[in-house]
Simulated scan of single mutants.
Amino acid sequence: MNAENWSDQENDAVVAVYFQMLMDDLAGRAYNKAMNNRGLQQSLGRSKGSIEFKNCNISAAMIGFGLPYIKGYQPRFNLQMSLAEAVSRWLAKNPSFEASSATMVAQRHVDTRALPFSSPPTMTNAPPPAELSQLEAIARRFDVAGRDERNRSLGKAGEERVFHHERGNLLASGRSDLADKVRWVSQEDGDGAGYDIASFAPNGSPRLIEVKTTNGWERTPFYITRNELEVADARRQEWSLVRLFDFSRQVRAFELRPPLEAHVSLMATQYRASFN
């Protein structure tokens, strides 16, 4: 058996066990990494060390997919794309994984506690180029931004968390009058306004907040619509994008203000086709 190259069947087996441990981890259930390792040793004929290393490779792939990973398996890069394909196959067979995890997490986050905000990603805090290149390749190949965008449960949970954060922030500032006027626009009126939450700064000036949520790390790519960009440009003093990340574990956030081109690279991914 080749010590370097793992077959699709081997990758599928170790990925399935990894996800089972991850689901237990996210739910706060106990699990036994050593026992699972021994089980894979017996079924695959691989060594304990090689299975441990493969689990660390899976953690690296999970970052590329914009998903949480098992903290006990610290990411190891230079993984083969065939392992990322195994992760993709597991997600395709278990489409409820992300929706159910978002619902579970939302139940823990519905409160008025202030979100922990940090500085947005920059070139100075980027990971090593080789690692970043590999993560970006996975994100592009498996359309991670599109998957987050289609995950309605995740998006709704993130918007609700920001809604409560805004109300709580105004209440803490002694502006209960404004807190009562905060609106969850996308929920009340539907999509199309170019923002999800209509809130206020403590001085009464309006805040229009577009929320983008991921279970992954802060650099997970996301989609933004032409309408959202147009509203951001037309109402620069009021509009902002709040990015929630690591949502399934310990949600954190950062805020981007227009022009977005100063913070992110915008790439056209779709074209409207009309007949001549």
Rank of each mutant, 00 (worst) to 15 (best):
residue 25 D to I: 03
residue 13 A to Y: 02
residue 60 A to Q: 11
residue 138 I to Q: 06
residue 158 G to I: 00
residue 245 F to N: 04
residue 96 S to G: 07
residue 8 D to Y: 02
residue 173 S to A: 15
residue 39 G to D: 07
residue 245 F to C: 03
residue 5 N to H: 14
residue 234 A to E: 15
residue 169 N to P: 01
residue 266 L to S: 09
residue 215 N to G: 15
residue 191 D to L: 06
residue 44 L to V: 08
residue 140 R to V: 11
residue 209 I to N: 04
residue 73 Y to R: 04
residue 274 S to C: 10
residue 256 L to V: 05
residue 249 R to M: 11
residue 251 V to L: 12
residue 232 A to N: 06
residue 47 S to D: 12
residue 101 S to N: 12
residue 135 L to W: 04
residue 91 L to W: 00
residue 215 N to Y: 02
residue 39 G to S: 06
residue 90 W to K: 00
residue 88 S to Q: 14
residue 219 R to H: 12
residue 2 N to H: 14
residue 201 A to M: 06
residue 23 M to Y: 05
residue 199 S to Q: 05
residue 158 G to S: 08
residue 239 W to C: 03
residue 155 G to M: 05
residue 219 R to M: 12
residue 246 D to H: 12
residue 66 G to N: 00
residue 72 G to N: 05
residue 219 R to G: 10
residue 112 T to D: 14
residue 125 N to P: 07
residue 128 P to K: 13
residue 194 G to V: 09
residue 146 G to I: 11
residue 132 L to F: 15
residue 191 D to E: 11
residue 28 G to A: 05
residue 275 F to W: 10
residue 167 R to H: 05
residue 25 D to A: 09
residue 2 N to S: 14
residue 171 L to E: 11
residue 15 V to F: 01
residue 269 T to W: 05
residue 124 T to Q: 15
residue 239 W to I: 02
residue 264 V to Y: 04
residue 118 S to H: 13
residue 43 S to T: 13
residue 207 R to F: 03
residue 122 T to M: 13
residue 5 N to R: 15
residue 263 H to W: 15
residue 13 A to L: 09
residue 78 N to D: 15
residue 61 A to K: 01
residue 118 S to K: 11
residue 185 V to F: 00
residue 233 D to H: 05
residue 74 Q to K: 13
residue 263 H to D: 04
residue 179 A to M: 06
residue 121 P to M: 08
residue 63 I to T: 00
residue 157 A to Q: 06
residue 57 N to M: 10
residue 90 W to P: 01
residue 86 A to G: 06
residue 249 R to G: 07
residue 252 R to W: 02
residue 172 A to F: 06
residue 204 G to M: 04
residue 23 M to R: 14
residue 25 D to C: 08
residue 133 S to E: 15
residue 2 N to W: 11
residue 167 R to L: 04
residue 244 L to K: 06
residue 49 G to T: 13
residue 263 H to T: 01
residue 136 E to Q: 15
residue 29 R to K: 13
residue 24 D to Q: 05
residue 81 M to E: 09
residue 65 F to Q: 00
residue 33 K to Q: 14
residue 214 T to E: 02
residue 237 Q to P: 02
residue 264 V to R: 03
residue 26 L to W: 00
residue 100 S to D: 14
residue 79 L to P: 01
residue 22 L to K: 01
residue 49 G to S: 14
residue 183 R to T: 09
residue 273 A to R: 08
residue 93 K to E: 11
residue 189 D to Q: 10
residue 13 A to Q: 10
residue 265 S to P: 02
residue 236 R to T: 12
residue 131 E to W: 07
residue 152 R to K: 12
residue 120 P to N: 11
residue 102 A to C: 11
residue 159 E to K: 08
residue 63 I to K: 00
residue 263 H to E: 03
residue 187 Q to G: 06
residue 132 L to I: 11
residue 7 S to R: 10
residue 146 G to R: 09
residue 164 H to S: 08
residue 271 Y to P: 01
residue 268 A to G: 07
residue 249 R to Q: 14
residue 49 G to E: 13
residue 17 V to T: 08
residue 233 D to V: 03
residue 173 S to P: 04
residue 8 D to M: 09
residue 237 Q to S: 14
residue 168 G to I: 09
residue 260 L to C: 07
residue 175 R to N: 07
residue 119 S to D: 15
